[in-house]
Computed example of a mutant assay.
Amino acid sequence: MLNNPVWAALSGPQAGYAEAAGDAARYQPDIAPFCAVADPADPAAWRDLATLTDYALLTGPSLAPPPGWVPDVRTMGVQMVGTAMTAVDDPEAVPLTEHDVPEMLELVARAQPGPFRKRTIDLGRYLGIRSRDGRLISMAGERFRMPGWTEVSAVCTDPEFRGQGLGARLTLAVAAGILARGELPFLHTVHDNENAIRLYERLGFEHSADVVFASFRYTG
């Protein structure tokens, strides 16, 4: 499942958020930009995907679509798992709801943690920390969910408040909720973000696999 987390999510616990056709699926566009195929080596699955979209963002250990799909953007990443970690709740972390989405989108625009859309919050529990004047300055939450696993995602802090350990605290708080459900946390980061990788290692995450995030355009 970890080799193909988006497919495992969209064909499993998050099927209710999917648009699907045969062996391909994608999140509803206002939730997340990710797509998936059951077997990235199967040209028929990519043909199914072409009935859903002509622009696809996927992730996995390797992605080599058949002719007709043209590479657009490719980013190398790292997948990390918390199979042996412990985590704790944070007394200052507050649950975020749909009423907080405008602030969350503003924070994402400033901090650039990766894809986050107006209904991404539907995918799981999101927590935030606010400044003394009430501004949302840090957040983290859950994205891909599959049997036994949930991804920690959208970990970000306003640039003005970085260096205070807020992201680490929220990562642990989100992971604590995942562990309390009897699941295991995992996450992704870009491969050259050495500071983030070292931080996650200190929190108890371990390297699982090298992955790629890649987008493709379908030209037929």
Rank of each mutant, 00 (worst) to 15 (best):
L2I: 00
L2K: 02
N4Q: 12
N4T: 03
P5N: 12
V6H: 11
W7Y: 03
W7S: 00
A8Q: 10
A9P: 01
A9G: 09
S11E: 09
P13K: 08
Q14C: 04
A15Q: 15
G16C: 09
A20R: 15
A20N: 01
A21E: 14
A24H: 00
A24R: 00
R26I: 04
R26W: 05
I31D: 01
I31G: 03
A32R: 09
A32Q: 13
A32E: 09
F34R: 01
C35Q: 01
A36K: 07
A36G: 13
A36E: 11
P40K: 06
D42Y: 02
P43K: 04
A44C: 01
A44M: 03
R47T: 14
D48K: 07
T51C: 07
L52N: 03
D54N: 11
D54K: 11
L57K: 11
G68E: 07
W69V: 01
V70Q: 13
V73D: 15
T75E: 12
M76N: 13
G77Y: 03
G77H: 00
V81I: 14
G82M: 08
A84W: 04
D89M: 10
D89C: 07
D89H: 13
E92N: 07
E92P: 01
V94A: 12
P95A: 14
V101E: 14
V101T: 13
E103S: 13
E106S: 14
L107I: 05
L107S: 10
A109G: 11
A109E: 14
Q112Y: 08
G114Y: 05
F116I: 06
F116P: 04
F116W: 05
R119C: 11
L123V: 08
G124P: 09
S131L: 03
S131M: 02
G134Y: 05
R135L: 04
L136M: 04
I137G: 00
S138Y: 08
S138W: 07
S138C: 12
S138H: 04
S138T: 10
E142C: 02
E142Y: 03
E142R: 01
R143W: 02
F144P: 00
R145C: 15
M146I: 07
P147S: 13
G148W: 01
G148F: 01
G148N: 04
G148T: 10
W149E: 08
T150L: 12
A154T: 15
A154H: 04
V155I: 15
T157A: 08
T157V: 14
F161E: 08
Q164Y: 06
A168K: 13
R169K: 15
R169Y: 02
L170Y: 09
T171S: 15
A175W: 05
G177V: 02
G177T: 05
G177S: 06
R181T: 10
G182V: 08
F186P: 01
F186D: 04
L187G: 00
H188P: 00
H188K: 01
V190M: 12
E194W: 08
E194S: 11
E194I: 09
A196L: 05
A196C: 07
I197V: 12
L199D: 06
Y200G: 03
L203P: 09
L203G: 12
G204I: 00
S208G: 11
D210T: 12
S215A: 10
R217K: 08
